[in-house]
């Protein structure tokens, strides 16, 4: 059972008070994007085993959306932060760095991950 704190109204509650909204900080690609880029936005997910950022909604409370930083391997919650940001704020990253030394935000965003441009055999 997760315990989350809503950064909007300040209430702490069990997960039944909230509703999960999937991976955070997805960036929608423009109308001119390639099919691959759109499929990436639409379907491809980071799905990490470890630190993850995700959206939640305080459905049985103030009703607001917000973000949560959480570990998917231990269910540890690192903290929650407001919805109108495009990246985790420094205090959340500091908290994660304290709990998970060696973890880097690039591990999650995958910006330095190799092989993203690899396009091997398609069609099965």
């Amino acid at each position: 059972m997760l315990q989350l704190t809503c950064p909007c109204c300040g209430a702490t509650g069990e997960e039944t008070e909230f509703h999960p909204g999937g991976e955070a900080h997805l960036r929608r690609v423009g109308p001119g994007a390639s099919d691959e880029a759109f499929a990436g936005y639409m379907f491809t997910r980071k799905n990490p085993k470890g630190v993850h950022f995700e959206r939640w909604r305080h459905v049985y409370g103030c009703g607001k959306w917000f973000h949560v930083a959480r570990c998917t391997a231990t269910l540890e919650v690192f903290g929650s932060y407001r919805a109108d940001v495009t990246a985790p704020p420094p205090e959340i990253l500091a908290r994660i760095a304290q709990r998970r030394p060696g973890w880097r935000l690039e591990d999650w965003t995958g910006e330095s991950a190799p092989g993203e441009d690899v396009d091997g055999g398609q069609g099965a």
Partner: peptide
Amino acid sequence: GHAGVLAQMAGFRLPLES
């Protein structure tokens, strides 16, 4: 469930959530 973890080892991501 760990398909995404192995995919990451090979440098790609999948349209999956565990």
